[in-house]
Design a protein around this nucleic acid. Sequence first.
RNA 1: GCCCUUGUAGCUCAGCUGGUAGAGCAAUUGAUUUGUAAUCAAUAGGUCCGCGGUUCGAGUCCGUGCGGGGGCACCA
Length: 638
Amino acid sequence: MPNIKLPDGNTLTFEKKVTGLKIAEKISKSLSKQALVISVDGNLKDLNFEIENDCSVKIHTSKDKEGIEIIRHDTAHVLAMAVQELFPGTQVTIGPVIDNGFYYDFARDEPFTHDDLQKIEKKMKEIIERDEPTHREIWERDKAIEHFKKAGEIYKAEIIKSIPKEEEVSIYFHGKWHDLCRGPHLLSTGRIGKYFKLTKVAGAYWRGDSNNEMLQRIYGTSWSSQKDLDEYLKRMEEAEKRDHRKLGKEMDLFHFREESPGSVFWHEKGWNLFQKLISFMRSKQDAAGYKEINTPEVLDRTLWEKSGHWEKFGENMYTSTTPDEKIFAIKPMNCPGCVQVFNQGLKSYRDLPLKMSEFGKVHRYEPSGALHGLLRVRAFTQDDAHIFCTEGQITQECLSVTNLILEIYKDLGFENVILKYSDRPNTRVGDDNVWDKSEKALLEAIKASKLEYSINKGEGAFYGPKIEFVLRDAIGRDWQCGTLQVDLNLPGRLGASFIDKDGSKKVPVMLHRALFGSLERFIGILIENYAGKLPFWISPLQTAVIPVSNDFDEYAKKVHKEIKKVGISSEVDLKNHNLNYKIREHSLSKIPILLICGKKEVDTNSVTIRRLDSNKQENMDLKLFLKKYSALNKVPSN
RNA sequence: GCCCUUGUAGCUCAGCUGGUAGAGCAAUUGAUUUGUAAUCAAUAGGUCCGCGGUUCGAGUCCGUGCGGGGGCACCA
């Protein structure tokens, strides 16, 4: 006689054991149709799972996260079924749910083609129409291993072997086809619906380990309605339109070329944007008490050996041998150089905290497959800084870095920031008790900041734990930008010291921090966040002056000159094209303000403003325009 | 680095099963003098990514190298 407690507080009592489906039927007919899965005392179960004891339940539909995930999981199973029906001999491995969809990894000698995806999709729809019923069996481990081995499913057998002994081995059947799976699943394939799409094929290592063989992964997306699917596909299209590589070309900001993969060739406008960000950051850091320095790009190997980079970071370093056969490394990080500046001259406890910033260009040999536009390059400029302080100052200094970073992101239009905390990695320098200390100090600072954070185990830098600042852009994507690291190792290794109050020599703590992270990456993110339509103050080319015809060229030139005089960048377009053409061209290159000059403007000494993304026209006295827009030509919060 | 895919004019792309290349835009020149997202015409423009091979003949087929894209692994 199970008593079933429902989320609304009511309790249903049943004579004998009961399934989720029966409960749903009892509640309402529509719920029984929409029901996908049930959670019993918080554990997700199949709808035909038999409940014998008192419990509280919640029935999930496609409106819940749980419901949509079941749909995706089942779609992945149907994908595997379809693949095995179409391509016998293909082995199945794993097929989990991911954000917005699912994937399934297969082992097959022949690669899947794009045409195959279409065929597979068709077959999947067929399987859904067949409405294969689901049922679950518990198998004895050895029997299960034997079974899958016999069936040629080596990977499945491997997976079963790695299931902890105390867990049961459950096998799900959809009709005759079956797969090892923890579940739960829908009652039948028909309940999936047909709002899915296979999106791409890709290689993926078995168990995510690059030492293992490569499998073929098929990605798909799956939803509970056509509307949701369409919206998702539209979001993907929108993201593609924002691609900074495409916009960078259209806006004439930068390009890449074969001769230096992963390194940016900045064009005039791109470099202007780059410099604007640097001077913005420079003024913020100046106000926060940082001292800017600059250190060499090429440094002797012995320094990198001392710092530990040679051993721990060597694979990512470019080196160079001089004619006299000395080995130098091109810096992959700015920290060792910065410590050299700290080491010049005696430092007192009174000098601490000492904050030294550097816009340092670093080179890292990144695997070719990792390169991606501005977001992952081999040569990049960090807005780096190193804060030398005492152990007692760590928390306070971390807090002021965090505040500075939030302020800067906000100025650039990013309000959503998440923290990720990473502790000691396997490849590291320094004793564990030193790591204990730095991890504790950094965690304290995070807690004091009261911001939300997640933990990335083992992802820290080789010399210390770190926080990463992740910002969320206009269309909900997350980007990792800034970083803050506590380092109790490098200063000692590189011989840094200060004289403390009591006259004794002590080793300072060093905080590494970068707020944009990499200027290159940050610019890529800015472009995508704004879809190229950068705020006026940061736009590399802010205005274009367009005469209605040649007759007004002189006036246009005069306006252009006046604008430049107040520090707004401008271009005057005297080409022999009509007005429509010029407006189109300059709009496509994302110039925020177009100024049209014709007879009316000449007569009244004014300009007609056309803003990017609006076809409204506004006529304004030239003097007023200059006044108004030079006021707008500043960081918004100032 | 690994798997798949791709590389033709400044850009975007066409070129079926092998017979030494084409379009639109951009550029140049000329005409037009334009009032809010492409005016018309003419001209010029290419070691079809590099190297090797098959073939009477390769943009097209094969091998290899380099670059790009999508993932994986790695990461700011």
